[in-house]
Protein backbone atom coordinates (compact mmCIF):
# COMPACT_ATOMS: atom_id res chain seq x y z
CA UNK A 1 0.00 0.00 0.00
CA UNK A 2 1.40 3.39 -0.94
CA UNK A 3 1.81 6.01 1.76
CA UNK A 4 -0.94 8.24 0.41
CA UNK A 5 -3.55 5.50 0.48
CA UNK A 6 -2.38 4.40 3.93
CA UNK A 7 -3.05 7.91 5.25
CA UNK A 8 -6.35 7.90 3.39
CA UNK A 9 -7.38 4.61 4.99
CA UNK A 10 -6.47 5.76 8.48
CA UNK A 11 -8.38 9.01 8.01
CA UNK A 12 -11.36 7.11 6.67
CA UNK A 13 -11.31 4.77 9.65
CA UNK A 14 -11.16 7.67 12.08
CA UNK A 15 -14.03 9.55 10.49
CA UNK A 16 -16.15 6.38 10.31
CA UNK A 17 -15.68 5.77 14.03
CA UNK A 18 -16.19 9.44 14.88
CA UNK A 19 -19.44 9.67 12.90
CA UNK A 20 -20.69 6.32 14.26
CA UNK A 21 -20.34 7.59 17.80
CA UNK A 22 -22.87 10.29 16.93
CA UNK A 23 -25.61 7.69 16.35
CA UNK A 24 -27.97 8.18 19.32
CA UNK A 25 -29.46 4.67 19.41
CA UNK A 26 -27.35 2.47 21.68
CA UNK A 27 -27.69 -0.73 19.65
CA UNK A 28 -27.03 0.82 16.25
CA UNK A 29 -24.08 2.82 17.58
CA UNK A 30 -22.42 -0.19 19.15
CA UNK A 31 -23.00 -2.30 16.08
CA UNK A 32 -21.53 0.36 13.77
CA UNK A 33 -18.35 0.71 15.83
CA UNK A 34 -17.91 -3.05 16.15
CA UNK A 35 -18.56 -3.66 12.45
CA UNK A 36 -16.14 -0.93 11.33
CA UNK A 37 -13.36 -2.23 13.59
CA UNK A 38 -13.86 -5.84 12.53
CA UNK A 39 -14.04 -5.00 8.82
CA UNK A 40 -10.84 -2.94 8.89
CA UNK A 41 -9.10 -5.68 10.85
CA UNK A 42 -10.31 -8.30 8.38
CA UNK A 43 -9.06 -6.29 5.38
CA UNK A 44 -5.74 -5.35 6.97
CA UNK A 45 -3.78 -7.79 4.84
CA UNK A 46 -5.25 -6.76 1.47
CA UNK A 47 -2.56 -6.21 -1.16
CA UNK A 48 -4.52 -6.14 -4.42
CA UNK A 49 -4.81 -2.39 -5.26
CA UNK A 50 -8.15 -2.96 -7.02
CA UNK A 51 -9.63 -4.63 -3.96
CA UNK A 52 -8.27 -1.86 -1.74
CA UNK A 53 -9.80 0.94 -3.80
CA UNK A 54 -13.05 -1.03 -3.98
CA UNK A 55 -13.13 -1.29 -0.18
CA UNK A 56 -12.28 2.41 0.18
CA UNK A 57 -15.12 3.36 -2.14
CA UNK A 58 -17.53 1.24 -0.12
CA UNK A 59 -16.33 2.73 3.15
CA UNK A 60 -16.87 6.22 1.75
CA UNK A 61 -20.41 5.29 0.77
CA UNK A 62 -21.01 3.87 4.25
CA UNK A 63 -19.63 7.04 5.83
CA UNK A 64 -22.36 9.02 4.07
CA UNK A 65 -25.00 6.50 5.22
CA UNK A 66 -23.77 6.79 8.82
CA UNK A 67 -23.85 10.60 8.67
CA UNK A 68 -27.41 10.63 7.34
CA UNK A 69 -28.67 7.96 9.72
CA UNK A 70 -27.07 9.66 12.74
CA UNK A 71 -28.99 12.80 11.79
CA UNK A 72 -32.28 10.93 11.44
CA UNK A 73 -31.61 9.21 14.74
CA UNK A 74 -31.10 12.58 16.40
CA UNK A 75 -34.37 13.87 14.95
CA UNK A 76 -36.39 10.94 16.26
CA UNK A 77 -34.45 10.07 19.36
CA UNK A 78 -35.87 8.14 22.32
CA UNK A 79 -35.03 7.85 26.00
CA UNK A 80 -31.80 6.08 26.75
CA UNK A 81 -31.77 2.35 27.43
CA UNK A 82 -31.76 1.14 31.01
CA UNK A 83 -28.12 0.03 30.86
CA UNK A 84 -27.01 3.43 29.58
CA UNK A 85 -28.73 5.27 32.41
CA UNK A 86 -27.16 2.95 34.99
CA UNK A 87 -23.74 3.70 33.58
CA UNK A 88 -24.26 7.48 33.64
CA UNK A 89 -25.67 7.36 37.18
CA UNK A 90 -22.56 5.59 38.41
CA UNK A 91 -20.30 8.31 37.04
Amino acid sequence: MSTTSKVQVINLYRSLIRESKKIPAYNFRNYAVRKIRDTFKENKGLTDPNRISQQIAEAQKNLEVIKRQALIGQMYSTDKLVIETIRTNKR
Binding site: N27, F28, V65, I72, G73, K80, V82
Partner: peptide, 23 residues
Amino acid sequence: DFDGRPLYLDAQATTPLDPRVLD
Protein backbone atom coordinates in the same frame (compact mmCIF):
# COMPACT_ATOMS: atom_id res chain seq x y z
CA ASP B 1 -38.74 1.78 38.95
CA PHE B 2 -36.11 1.66 36.30
CA ASP B 3 -34.73 4.56 34.39
CA GLY B 4 -34.80 4.40 30.63
CA ARG B 5 -36.13 2.10 27.97
CA PRO B 6 -36.11 -1.69 28.36
CA LEU B 7 -33.50 -3.74 26.53
CA TYR B 8 -34.74 -5.54 23.45
CA LEU B 9 -34.24 -9.30 23.54
CA ASP B 10 -37.13 -10.50 21.43
CA ALA B 11 -35.53 -10.90 18.01
CA GLN B 12 -37.97 -13.67 17.04
CA ALA B 13 -40.98 -11.37 17.34
CA THR B 14 -39.40 -8.73 15.15
CA THR B 15 -36.03 -7.16 14.52
CA PRO B 16 -35.19 -3.46 14.36
CA LEU B 17 -34.97 -1.91 10.92
CA ASP B 18 -31.31 -1.73 9.97
CA PRO B 19 -30.31 1.94 9.40
CA ARG B 20 -28.65 0.90 6.13
CA VAL B 21 -31.98 -0.51 4.99
CA LEU B 22 -33.82 2.65 5.96
CA ASP B 23 -31.26 4.63 3.99
